[in-house]
């Protein structure tokens, strides 16, 4: 009986420790979550993809776009990628298109990363202009959810739970 109680206590404490670790690992960025519901028009851009072809945001009108500013050296960004790949698979048929904007200085590590993580959505190489156009991308990751009319529905600064992004995506997909 006593040993069973000890096992239960030990398991409980381990659970607490894992919680502490997860909190430390994800940092305070969770609290920064969705900062604003904005409805301004998302600034248009035309930027080179990894394959050299240019991608223009306005060509995605009629789709719900998740615009993800990230970089290969950014740990929370890397952690989000598998969830974004999953999200793209799950909602592509309903009109979701994810676009990654890499803030890396060179496309080389991005190409390697793209292959390794089997990314299933286009990635363009960002620059200071697009950063400023979107209000300053001075910390990563930052995700914008853009509705079918090209308006910004939500902005998420910092590491964001996949479920939170999915909730927003579902809301925009359902509203139009």
């Amino acid at each position: 009986m006593a040993s069973r109680r000890r096992i239960l206590i030990g398991a409980g404490l381990l659970f607490v420790a894992v919680g502490v670790y997860v909190a430390l690992h994800r940092g305070g960025s969770i609290a920064r979550g969705p900062t604003a519901k904005q409805h301004s028009v998302a600034p248009d851009f035309s930027l080179p993809q990894l394959n050299g072809q240019s991608l223009q945001l306005s060509a995605y009108r009629g789709k719900v776009v998740l615009l993800d500013f990230w970089a290969t050296w950014c740990t929370p960004c890397r952690e989000e990628i598998p969830h974004l790949v999953e999200l793209q698979n799950k909602y592509r048929d309903r009109g979701l298109e994810i676009i990654g904007v890499s803030m890396d200085d060179s496309p080389d590590p991005v190409r390697d990363f793209y292959q390794r993580f089997q990314m299933n959505y286009p990635v363009v190489m960002g620059n200071a202009d697009i950063g400023e156009g979107y209000g300053g991308v001075l910390g990563l990751p930052i995700a914008f959810i853009i509705d079918r009319d090209g308006r910004i529905y939500a902005k998420h600064i910092g590491a964001t739970e996949a479920s939170v992004l999915e909730q927003d995506v579902r809301a925009v997909l359902a509203s139009q």
């Binding site: 940092g27 305070g28 960025s29 050296w73 950014c74 740990t75 929370p76 910390g139 990563l140 590491a159």
Partner: peptide
């Protein structure tokens, strides 16, 4: 670039 605990 990132929150302090993630800056590489």
């Amino acid at each position: 670039c990132c929150p302090w605990n993630h800056c590489p």
